[in-house]
Amino acid sequence: MPTAIDNNKNFGLTQTQFDEMTEQLQQGDETLFETLFLSRFEACMGILMRKYRASHPDAYDCVMWAMLRMRQLMMENKVAFGNLEAYVVRMSVNKYLKQVERNREFPTEIMPEGITDSNEELELESLETLDSAWSKMGQKCQDLLKAFYYDKIELKRLTEILGDSSEASTRKRKERCLNELRRLFFESVH
């Protein structure tokens, strides 16, 4: 027997609408995701500020981080329909608590994999170096690397988009671009 789920917990979405939104997101159309999630941004900030006494800018940064992670998780099909609003709030809170180095740990067992903040280790200098290397790359390589690594578009679909003859040829092209980025990146390190 199907379980009735409160739509308010899922930004007003039904399971079908959620599936459609995920599909749209994976196809590169972020309109619905942005409309829904950004409309709840302030409410999520409010929870952090009221319940956890986060400052306004801290709450803003943590919710922004959580929304970006949520986008990534949805693109990777790692988040299921159930209680999306709680996911976002929980991620924001967890981020905030880590940030202020409190000993109080939030339970993470219900959170999907891959939401740890791996970027924390990255230095600002590395990003500046990347920007410099990136600007020297060709548009086609930029598009391909962004599509594969950030927009999480599968090679099979990329082959169709790029009009390549086979998936193997797209993979080869991606490897060449990645090597090009590697060369330019380390050349830009002073």
Binding site: R71, N119, L122, K146, Y149
Partner: peptide
């Protein structure tokens, strides 16, 4: 590269959302 690209484009998307 994956981490760097995530950080770079998160930053850009974040700036876009900030305007919205």
């Amino acid at each position: 590269a994956q981490q760097l690209l995530n950080a770079k484009f998160d930053k850009e998307l974040g700036a876009e959302w900030e305007k919205k």
